[in-house]
């Protein structure tokens, strides 16, 4: 039995080789970030030999911009995560448990929303926020993400899976709808909350097109847009090593979060799709 489930050695070798290929580009960027810009201009192969320097990282620390962007990304991602969790939980409970006129048809409409890609609505969204003069704000960066039907769909499915007997028992004790939702059912949905939260957080963190056209003020850039702006600058004034240090700096927070919460993240992503 156990012999059968152990993968064939050739496959293991192949997978390890692939893993090395996964790591090599990251390591390459990492060593470039510790090199002097002028040395790299002459020859990037110099990255394989000392001297190495922390100068690029010191320069990032000396420059406030990246921190502003990082902060924006953190705020936007957390706010969007919180918002999606609240709104989707309420709606999920409503659709799964409550009776109200139009419930079925509304749910079908929301399901239809699952099929609408961001690209089909982004122009309209841009027009709406333009008309309200609300671009370059956290509101503009966060609110569109709250309309994702996926969260509602996920939470509805999850609430449906909770036995109705639990509500009924509480109802007999005279608990209100909201109390049942808040005190009794919501705690039972924590695994789904984790799934949805992590999913939303990474999606918000990596969002590119919307912040690119909405957050056009350097103070409002998210990290993703800010790094893009430095990346395609006509005059690569900052130098390669600095650019690489910035990439490392931008990638590190999510990598660390990932490594700490690895188990939950993997479970969450798999859980989201399982629904």
């Amino acid at each position: 039995m156990s012999a059968l489930r152990r993968p064939p050695p050739l496959a293991v070798v192949a997978v390890v080789a692939l893993a090395v290929l996964m790591l090599v580009p990251m390591l390459w960027v990492l060593i470039l970030s510790f090199k002097d810009n002028t040395a790299l201009l002459a020859d990037t192969a110099s990255a394989f030999v000392p001297p190495y320097t922390f100068a690029n990282y010191r320069n990032i620390m000396g420059e406030g911009q990246v921190f502003t962007w990082l902060m924006n990304s953190v705020i936007v991602s957390l706010a969007m995560t919180a918002g999606v969790l609240i709104v989707s939980s309420l709606a999920g409970y409503g659709f799964a448990r409550l009776e109200f006129p139009g419930r079925k048809i509304l749910f079908v409409v929301v399901l239809f929303g699952l099929a609408i890609p961001e690209q089909a609505v982004i122009i309209g969204r841009h027009q709406i926020f333009s008309a309200l003069s609300m671009h370059n704000s956290y509101t503009a960066l966060v609110v569109p993400g709250l309309s994702m039907p996926f969260g509602v769909f996920l939470m509805t499915q999850y609430f449906r899976a909770i036995p109705v007997e639990i509500d009924e028992a509480a109802m007999l004790d005279g608990a209100s709808r909201f109390r049942i939702f808040w005190r009794i059912l919501l705690p039972l949905t924590i695994p789904a909350q984790a799934t949805l939260g992590i999913f939303t957080f990474f999606q918000a963190w990596n969002d590119y097109w919307w912040p690119l056209i909405s957050a056009t003020d350097g103070q409002m850039y998210t990290l993703t847009v800010g790094i893009a702006a430095t990346q395609v600058n006509f005059a690569q004034a900052e130098g390669l090593g600095f650019l690489m240090a910035q990439a490392v700096f931008a990638g590190l927070p999510t990598l660390i979060v990932y490594l700490i919460f690895q188990k939950y993240i993997v479970r969450a992503v798999a859980g989201a799709a399982g629904q």
Binding site: G62, E63, Q65, N233, F234, A235, Q236, A237, E238
Partner: peptide, 14 residues
């Protein structure tokens, strides 16, 4: 608010 290209070089000239 002043918007410009010409690149960013805060590290060297900030």
């Amino acid at each position: 608010v002043v918007q410009r290209f010409f690149g960013s070089c805060q590290a060297d000239y900030g």
